[in-house]
């Protein structure tokens, strides 16, 4: 009996849990630390990319004369230049620009949902969460197209010394350059895409909870904030992937 009363005592002392030095809840703090650990994972991927790229020769001729070869690392503008519906047209980086815009927009709608949550505005939270789910799914669809185009390759392909032609890419061989180029494309964008997919699943879950009024009864929309932190992190990772994979 005395034990139960001890458990029911609220912890108010400075050294037994009554103090919040960071002024954030346990869940939000752990989300921050999880994201920090996730940074390590993506950091490892980008380091691997940098090292693999340094181990291969850079292309030295003019951009117009560029051809795919296993001798050198490809120029990203020449690999990612296709756009759905415009077959064979050279639009360097246009599609990836669109994907970047979609993801930044989804980040904005997410932060608008968080803002609406602070005001306890259930309708606005629903509206902005739906937009975020829409943009997130659009990004995933774009990535699916990007992957299928990368795997299928172009009609010209890459001519080998023995006269045979390689089209597209897999983990062993690809038409764009050294095998590691396609491997790192699959692993880095794939790992990021998996994060986006998990984010969309989380967003759908909190959307259902919001519609059911779970957070309104709870008195706060902190779960939206926590998923929001994750979603912005996914956007943040894309900013880095975009720079190091598509621009540099």
């Amino acid at each position: 009996m005395s034990q139960t009363t001890t458990f029911e005592q609220p912890n108010t002392g400075t050294w037994d849990g009554g103090n919040e030095p960071f002024k954030v809840s346990y869940g939000k703090l752990m989300m921050w630390f999880f994201l920090l650990s996730d940074t390590f994972t993506f950091g490892a991927f980008l380091t691997t990319y940098g090292l693999a790229r340094h181990r291969h020769r850079a292309y030295e001729g003019t951009a117009d004369a560029f051809t795919f070869s296993t001798e050198w690392w490809p120029i990203p503008d020449k690999v990612f230049n296709a756009f759905p519906g415009f077959h064979g047209v050279d639009w360097p980086l246009a599609f990836v620009a669109l994907m970047t815009m979609i993801l930044i927009l989804s980040s904005v709608t997410m932060v608008l949902a968080v803002e609406a949550g602070h005001r306890m505005d259930k309708n606005d939270v629903q509206k902005w969460l739906l937009w975020t789910i829409l943009f997130g799914s659009m990004f995933l669809g774009c990535q699916a197209w990007e992957w299928s185009h990368f795997i299928a390759g172009t009609e010209e392909g890459m001519k080998l010394a023995d006269g045979s032609v390689i089209h597209g890419a897999n983990l062993i061989v690809n038409q764009y350059g050294p095998p590691l180029f396609a491997d790192l494309f699959f692993f880095i964008t794939g790992f990021h895409g998996t994060h986006v997919f998990s984010g969309v699943v989380l967003l759908i879950m909190i959307f259902i909870n919001t519609v059911n009024g779970v957070y309104h009864r709870r008195g706060h929309y902190e779960m939206v904030e926590k998923v929001g932190l994750y979603w912005h992190f996914v956007d943040l990772v894309w900013v880095f992937v975009f720079t190091f994979f598509y621009l540099v």
Partner: peptide, 21 residues
């Protein structure tokens, strides 16, 4: 990255301890 973390993730407006952590 600064704008995303500071404004969207709201880190700029958290306590100094969390920012440093």
């Amino acid at each position: 990255a600064f704008y995303i973390v500071a404004e969207f993730m709201h880190l700029k407006h958290e306590t100094k301890g969390l920012i440093w952590a």
